[in-house]
Design a protein around this nucleic acid. Sequence first.
DNA 1: GTTCCACGGGAAGATAAGGTCG
DNA 2: CGACCTTATCTTCCCGTGGAAC
Length: 411
Amino acid sequence: MQSKSLDGLFQELLENEPIFKNKEVLRHSYTPDSLVHRDDQINSLASILVSALRGDTPSNILIYGKTGTGKTAVTRHVGIELERKGESLGLSCKVVYLNCEVIDTQYRLLANLTRQFGEDVPMTGWPTDQVFFKFKETIDNERQVVIIILDEIDKLIKKGDDVLYNLSRINTDLENAKVSMIGVSNDLKFTEFLDPRVKSSLGEEEIIFPPYDADQISDILHERAEIAYKPDALDEMVIPLCAAFAAQEHGDARRALDLLRVAGEIAERENKSHVEEQHVKGAQEKIEVDRVIEVVRTLPTQSKLALYSVMLLRNNGYKNVTTGEVYNVYRQLCLQVDMDILTQRRVTDLMSELDMLGIVNAVVVSKGRYGRTKEIVLSVPINSTKKVLFEDYRLKPLEFFKPVLTTQLHL
DNA sequence: GTTCCACGGGAAGATAAGGTCG
DNA sequence: CGACCTTATCTTCCCGTGGAAC
């Protein structure tokens, strides 16, 4: 390789006409100032929350919509506006935002809420009711309206709905402060699992976010591309193509933005001065592969072993892999790498988790007299997955290991 | 029509690892 | 220090069952 001075190395990269003007606006974390095609939702949300500015408690709200339909962006946007307006009117109006996917237990939720009001709560150690009490005490210090946004609220239900029940009744214990909640969910049916009391209190108002269609996504992309890219950096077909791909994915605007950004990155890496159609196709592929790789990489070792078992069976010509066989191989793998062997029951659960993550596809089938089982099909490319698995040093000894397979090949 | 297997579902509880508090 | 807290991860136990094989 030609050696250049270091200075020259970076100089060249810098001078290379960048395609991007401001890439940040294509990231999920960016909240745009104006939200296209969501006027209805913004207005209904605002008209419900306006009572906070009159010092009343707004109704609790449930918001539904698939991923990437702008729920979070709209809610946050309205929240910020509300706080701002409250401030100028001299009313204390506080909007707190919590993502229940990260904060998924009663304790953590309450602790987090309390912390947002400047009080310190330890990570763990306290009884939960003490945290709840502390929270009530903290907010009740001041005359204020508190609006709690619970994003991905459906994740919370799976662990029991005590928190929601408690929170929905909190107003009866408060002297000064008023609390109302906004639940955001991408599962339209999640209220079915809710305690009826919680359900009626939480769902006083409902707002639905329909998926975007391809044209609407195009509009959104145009708007952002204007800020994100240099003029003329995009080929004519780039945005429609991104929009079309994303529209297939239930109108996911987030996906569309990802596509647009990754396509740009690919083009940049190829030293092209503008983004072409093929880059979008490349982006589509890359995003999917990245997702899988990331998921596999962060899997717990036990799940990796289970997954590798499936792959081994697959490699040995097993068309229909069943739970029993997987467990058999899995046990051998464990002995090989000196890990504890989990029970079959537990491994069944691990397989279900892999199924949920979309790494594997499991269908329950009955084999009549020979029982019932899950038939497991791998839904990721074997080779690249294998490579990722062996990045884990604990799996290294398995690289050339051949399991003993039970020879019962029933068709 | 019956049978009956190899699972799946659900729940309870054990354990360990994080922590607070007096 | 010990008493007591949460949480994640597994184990244990028991029951339920789809549907081809009989």
